[in-house]
Simulated scan of single mutants.
Amino acid sequence: MTKEIRSWLSDMDGVLVHEGVALPGAADFVRALRDAERPFLVLTNNSIFTPRDLAARLRASGIDIPEDAIWTSALATAQFLTDQMPSGSAYVIGEAGLTTALYEAGYTLTGAEPDFVVLGETRTYSFEAITQAIRLIQGGARFIATNPDVTGPSQDGDLPATGAVAAMISAATGRQPYFVGKPNPMMIRSALNRIEAHSESTAMVGDRMDTDVVAGIEAGLRTFLVLTGSTRAADVETYPFRPSEVVDSIADLVARV
Rank of each mutant, 00 (worst) to 15 (best):
Met85Phe: 06
Met85Cys: 14
Pro86Gly: 09
Ser87Cys: 13
Gly88Val: 02
Ser89Asp: 05
Ala90Lys: 03
Tyr91Val: 01
Tyr91Ser: 04
Tyr91Ala: 03
Val92Lys: 00
Val92Asn: 01
Ile93Pro: 00
Gly94Ser: 14
Gly94Phe: 04
Ala96His: 06
Ala96Tyr: 03
Gly97Pro: 11
Leu98Ala: 10
Leu98Phe: 08
Leu98Glu: 10
Leu98Trp: 07
Thr99Tyr: 04
Thr100Cys: 14
Ala101Arg: 05
Ala101Phe: 03
Leu102Ser: 08
Leu102Thr: 04
Glu104Gly: 06
Glu104Tyr: 05
Gly106Ala: 07
Gly106Pro: 09
Tyr107Thr: 01
Thr108Gln: 15
Thr108Ser: 15
Thr108Arg: 15
Leu109Asp: 06
Leu109Gly: 10
Leu109Glu: 03
Thr110Lys: 13
Thr110Asp: 09
Gly111Pro: 12
Gly111Met: 07
Gly111Val: 01
Ala112Cys: 09
Glu113Asn: 15
Glu113Leu: 11
Glu113Val: 04
Pro114Leu: 10
Asp115Gly: 09
Asp115Asn: 14
Phe116Thr: 00
Phe116Leu: 13
Val117Gly: 01
Val118Phe: 12
Leu119Ala: 02
Leu119Glu: 00
Gly120Glu: 05
Glu121Pro: 04
Glu121Val: 01
Thr122Lys: 13
Thr122Tyr: 11
Thr122Arg: 13
Arg123His: 08
Thr124Ile: 04
Tyr125Ile: 02
Tyr125Lys: 08
Ser126Asp: 14
Ser126Gln: 12
Ser126Asn: 14
Glu128Phe: 04
Glu128Cys: 04
Glu128Gln: 11
Ala129His: 10
Ala129Trp: 03
Ala129Asp: 13
Ile130Tyr: 05
Ile130Gln: 11
Thr131Arg: 15
Thr131Leu: 15
Gln132Trp: 01
Gln132Glu: 10
Ala133Val: 00
Ala133Pro: 02
Ile134Thr: 05
Ile134Asn: 01
Ile134Ser: 05
Arg135Pro: 02
Leu136Cys: 08
Leu136Asn: 00
Ile137Leu: 12
Ile137Phe: 05
Gln138Lys: 15
Gln138Asn: 14
Gly140Ala: 07
Gly140Cys: 09
Ala141Pro: 11
Arg142Leu: 12
Arg142Thr: 04
Ala145His: 05
Ala145Thr: 01
Ala145Ser: 12
Thr146Ser: 15
Asn147Arg: 10
Asn147Trp: 03
Pro148His: 10
Asp149Ala: 09
Val150Glu: 13
Val150Leu: 12
